[in-house]
Design a protein around this nucleic acid. Structure first.
Lengths: 323, 323
DNA sequence: TTGTAGGCGTTATCAA
DNA sequence: TTGATAACGCCTACAA
């Protein structure tokens, strides 16, 4: 029964009804309600892969927010071993068949055609962590430019001037924004950018490869620090540095991005830009809930969360130059 | 349209129909189907907390298996900051309202009343990773006894004889089974168990506390190695050892359990018993799918997966005794 | 083979 | 305010 109207019925009667209902094993049938009211109380959530450590806190935030309104998330991991089938498209169709009331999308790239058509079909969408290229979808993201500025500021304060960037894929808004943020921050300090390598994906092995590319040019560039666009890249980079016999932070300082779990336990504990993952998921889900309540056309916001630098043992003053 | 009967219709007509359907924006309404057929194509998944690194691979396995049959998982994180409300009970009721066809439960303790009543209500249930106390529910678990044997065998082969156990909560089947496995393995080697500490929960800080308890008795017991029931406990233990100025593995060898992600990157890289998390989720979901297909009363299996020892740098031969 | 009627459980509408 | 009734969209069973 509608919670707001319980008081209209005698308490004693109400209790008798509820006991009876329990004894008869009555359960409200949500499928019937969904059909009749056209509200499934579910939303679709698109993630690349829940196995990637950044996503569990985001998902937890989403579910905590949905929970408050009695919603469930239908989850799809879109990154699959077999890329021949378009997992995203399939997932969206299945979710639409389930009549999800909206979508939370953490898989956007800067040129996703499906996002546009999904939007044009009138679906409610909130992006998480990554924006699309056009920027006309509401989103909850971290201030990636600021994050990179914090990283560069920290290194400059330690005395570094020759700083390299281990960039993420430019197809992702985060990869692009962090590169731009890095360049901007360097400019503000009057520093020129000597080296940059772009990783193919946010993954450990891609980071290793990219770092090797950086190291190949090291004799020329003499960089003493590396800002990575992502922790996984940084971890891969750490491995490449170790193989090259370069000590972190003595020879090279390294900064990651995301501050994913366990990063304080790795060797050396990694300095990283902490992103509010849980908050990101929570706010995005709330935003979606609000959009579902409002009449269509209510203005939709983009929320930008503040990152924070967490200094650990992978950054130190550069070695004295042997001039 | 039913895939098995497509051929009964002229291909050309079929295509015209499908184009028309697409143009009209037709989407099959699953809510209606669910109501009419009594099948929601969803199952409930109960986890303590997706943020704990062991669960993402399990969930991924579950979803990959469900995906094959067009099912979605409705997820609930039952461990909540405010324990005053029984999150499990609430989640189950909401899932039943959504008419989930079964439950995948990774939160079982050895004395859960709700599990029994859920079972008696006729729900299909498959347990994951942990069993209940009575053992009359189908489950997919890892061979915890074997896992501990692998750990002890490895330490004995290195020359250790005084081995301590950092046990998990006895309310969980894994905590109990691993302790029993440890004791059994020690017995097989003719070794007596000098020290054991039981952690309150599978968490880093609980591991730290428990290790401190072990260390308090160290002058008497002189243990040279610790087998932890869980990686988080081992990580906490590592911290306590570091604070006590004991080097790992030179002074003390440490073995974890689960081989969770990033464990190869911590300092020192942790030797651990690898559990097939993904497989566990995948098989459990498959088992549930089968149970849903069969007539009621079909015999239900418990699947036991083989763990595997992953040797890294946290274990070494014991220091020479100064006799 | 094709078509049609009734029902799934809930909600909303419209009369009384 | 209350109570009966149609409708939500799909599925199945039965009739044509």
């Amino acid at each position: 029964m509608d919670a707001q109207r319980r008081h209209l019925v005698a308490t004693e009667l109400l209790q008798r009804i509820e006991t009876a209902a329990r004894e008869l094993g009555y359960r409200p049938n949500h499928a019937a309600s969904a059909l009749s009211r056209g509200r499934s109380k579910t939303v679709g959530v698109l993630l690349p892969d829940i196995t990637n450590p950044v996503f569990p806190p985001i998902l937890r935030g989403i579910e905590d927010a949905l929970d408050e309104e009695g919603y469930f998330a239908l989850l799809a991991n879109t990154s699959r071993p077999d890329p021949s089938v378009d997992a995203t498209q399939v997932a969206i169709e299945r979710m639409q068949a389930q009549r999800v009331e909206g979508f939370l999308v953490a898989t956007a790239t800067r040129d996703d055609a499906w996002l546009d058509s999904l939007r044009q079909s009138g679906a409610h969408i909130v992006l998480i962590n990554r924006t699309d290229g056009r920027g006309h979808l509401p989103a909850v993201i971290s201030d990636d430019m600021l994050g990179m500025r914090l990283a560069v500021d920290h290194l400059v304060a330690l005395g570094h001037t020759r700083i390299a960037h281990l960039a993420g894929p430019e197809t992702l808004s985060t990869g692009l924004a962090r590169r731009l943020g890095f360049e901007q921050a360097m400019r503000e300090h009057g520093l020129t950018i000597k080296t940059m390598a772009v990783a193919e994906a946010y993954a450990v092995d891609a980071g290793e490869t990219a770092m090797q590319a950086l190291l190949a040019k090291r004799s020329k560039t003499q960089f003493t620090a590396v800002v990575a666009a992502n922790d996984l890249l940084a971890l891969g980079g750490l491995q490449a540095l170790q193989q090259a016999g370069l000590a972190v932070p003595q020879a090279i300082s390294v900064i990651g991005h995301n501050d994913m779990p366990l990063l304080d336990q790795v060797n050396p504990p990694l300095t990283s830009v902490r992103i509010q993952h849980y908050e990101m998921g929570f706010r995005a889900a709330r935003l979606l809930m609000e959009a579902l309540r409002e009449r269509p056309g209510s203005q939709e916001a983009t929320v930008v969360l503040r990152p924070q630098l967490v200094v650990r043992a992978s950054t130190a003053a550069p070695m004295k130059l042997k001039v």
